[in-house]
């Protein structure tokens, strides 16, 4: 029973973080038609910035907000410097086929990931470092029993919930959010109705950058920080996004929690080595039974 509760609580807090990662992927996919494999590289980079600020004596919260902002700026920069020139090149022979139009941005994002990891290695050395949590990582005590749910877990779950509410409001209630949804639905029509699609694309990259930086800040206290330390989080986030539906923000959240639970229960009831095989199994099952994901729309881009 205790193992079950521990798995459940760890699954909830990890699931919240994976939901953020998946949400970041979904936002860029909807806004730009690209799966951004560099996303957790960006998050790693801004978490290093936060870590450096804290080491230099700044408070956690200053570092926290600087990291979010630098995540957003980095995301926007990558779109302007790499992805926008790339999408303007669609006339070139190599990009003339549909399959290559899908493949080439993925290759570019892998290049970005490589650059960010190498830069982080050069600037901040390769050795792992820890990253502080803003709340205690010991379980709550109720009537003398230590629960497996820590105040840091509570912090993670509540901050992710707030973020999800803000994102939903942004997409449904604001003009920019509406413009972004229109661009996601049909770029040509959006352009013709006067939406500056280049700008909405860049905003998608910025929001996604901030969301994944938040995920980076929340996950590093329980792991360690090194140039490659967030690679696995990206894999899980990608699987979560596919499970939920790559074009559905609500699906991303659902997928994140499903993956959090699967990973947590496999870790607690089997060995950590089985985690990857479990992720692979979940991914394959979803792709075979329901390739568009649980909440993905039917006419979404073909799988």
């Amino acid at each position: 029973m205790n193992t079950f509760l521990a798995a459940l609580s760890s699954g909830t807090s990890r699931g919240a973080i994976f939901a953020l990662v998946a949400l970041g992927l979904v936002i860029v996919w909807r806004g730009a038609g690209i799966v951004n494999f560099a996303q957790m590289g960006q998050a790693m980079f801004s978490t290093y910035i936060a870590s450096t600020l804290i080491t230099n004596g700044n408070s956690y919260w200053i570092a926290f907000f600087v990291a979010l902002i630098s995540g957003a700026v980095l995301g926007a920069l990558l779109d302007i410097l790499v992805m926008r020139p790339l999408s303007n090149k669609k006339q070139s022979e190599l990009l003339s086929s549909e399959s290559m139009r899908a493949a080439v941005p993925v290759i570019a994002s892998l290049g970005i990931l490589g650059v960010l990891q190498a830069l982080a290695g050069i600037i901040w050395a390769a050795e792992e470092r820890g990253f502080p949590a803003p709340a205690k990582q010991e379980g709550f005590t109720v009537a003398g029993n230590v629960l497996p749910f820590t105040s840091f877990d509570l912090f993670v779950v509540s901050i992710v919930t707030v973020t999800l509410i803000i994102t939903t409001l942004f997409f449904t209630k604001t003009g920019i959010g509406l413009a972004m949804r229109a661009t996601a639905l049909n770029q040509e029509v959006a352009k013709l109705s006067g939406i500056r699609t280049n700008r909405t694309r860049t905003i998608s990259w910025a929001i996604s950058g901030a969301a994944s930086s938040l995920a980076g800040l929340l996950i590093t206290p329980t792991s360690n920080l090194s140039p490659n330390s967030l690679d696995l989080v990206l894999i899980v986030g990608f699987t979560a996004a596919v499970v939920g539906g790559l074009d559905s923000p609500a699906g991303a959240v659902l997928g994140g929690f499903i993956l959090g639970m699967v990973i947590s229960f496999v870790t607690f009831y089997s060995t950590p080595e089985d985690v990857f095989l479990a992720i692979l199994a979940v991914l394959l099952i979803v792709l075979i039974i329901r390739p568009r994901g649980i909440l993905g729309s039917k006419d979404a881009r073909r799988v």
Binding site: A103, I235, F238, L246, I279
Partner: peptide, 13 residues
């Protein structure tokens, strides 16, 4: 049956 980023992601996993 997979295309583009789906194939890339799945093979990465």
């Amino acid at each position: 049956r997979l295309r583009g980023p789906y194939l890339a992601g799945t093979t990465l996993v």
